[in-house]
């Protein structure tokens, strides 16, 4: 039976983790490679890096991080943030990323998704959708949530599936950072409209939120950051909890 995945996400800036794992035994609290290894040893089903490097000069730092991580972690590695072109995707894959997540570029030009999924296969193309609810719809935002687009997130999800995306990483901007749980409505609406797996993101504060994301939101995978970073829960605890609620996980 296919298992639901738990994906810890690390924010990486200039090659260093911001808001990392708060463990006493860490040699270097800012080293993404070391933290990714702790997660994969702990049973994470995948690792996600989000590159939040602001300046172009420091963009290359993520390549070294990916290279080093892929030599030590033997679970899938997804990298997102600042991915603009097919060439960017190619570079990340060559460094050892297994999947690349595209956000702003996918909204601006769906051809990037079409072309890259043809060239590298749908399996490595994840489209990240940042959405915020308004009176009429869930609206897609770009540029790390700064720019509104007027695009309906559910229609956009359909378009991305048709363009060749292998998975959708759906983040509720209303919930992100609030720790009150995923936007279940948004997740379940998108999940029921597409035939590709949906990864739920944004808002996890406790383990029941992970359960809800899968049971009510119909997500194939759940992504979380802060609940794992500060040692509130380990990956193992999260999996055991999901298992106790009857959700199939890899233990």
């Amino acid at each position: 039976m296919l298992k639901n995945r738990i994906i810890p996400c690390l924010d990486v800036k200039n090659g260093r983790v911001v808001k990392g794992i708060n463990f006493v035994d860490l040699k270097d609290a800012g080293d993404p490679v070391e933290q990714a290894k702790i997660y994969s040893d702990g049973g994470a089903d995948e690792i996600c890096f989000l590159d939040i490097t602001a300046s172009n000069e420091n963009r290359d730092t993520i390549f070294d991080v990916v290279k080093d991580t892929s030599k030590k972690c033997f679970v899938p590695l997804t990298v997102g943030g600042g991915v603009r072109s097919v060439e960017d995707i190619n570079k990340l894959l060559n460094c050892g990323a297994d999947k690349v997540s595209i956000n702003t570029a996918a909204v601006q030009n769906a051809e990037v998704v079409v072309e890259s999924s043809k060239k590298f296969g749908s399996q490595c193309i994840v489209v990240a959708i940042d959405a915020k609810k308004n009176d009429k719809m869930w609206e897609v935002f770009t540029h790390g949530g700064r720019n509104k687009t007027g695009i309906d997130a559910i229609e956009f999800a359909n378009k991305m599936e048709a363009s060749g995306a292998g998975e959708l990483l759906v983040t509720s901007m209303d919930r992100d950072g609030t720790q009150v749980g995923y936007d279940i409505d948004l997740m379940s609406k998108i999940s029921s409209k597409v035939n590709i797996p949906v990864i739920a993101s944004g808002g996890v504060g406790n383990l029941d939120h992970l359960v809800d994301g899968i049971k009510l939101g119909n997500a194939s995978a759940v992504l979380a950051a802060s609940i794992f970073h500060y040692g509130k829960y380990s990956i193992k605890e999260a999996k055991e909890y999901l298992d106790s609620k009857g959700i199939p996980v890899r233990i």
Partner: peptide, 30 residues
């Protein structure tokens, strides 16, 4: 959903040489 993405179990036939010391129903990434 397709693609079939994620960890799933393999039911091993006893003949598999590359499955030496691998437990039946082990999880693999697909």
């Amino acid at each position: 959903k397709l693609p079939h993405i994620g960890w799933n179990e393999i039911k091993i036939n006893n003949s598999g040489k590359i499955f030496k010391d691998i437990r039946d129903m082990s999880h693999m990434y697909f």
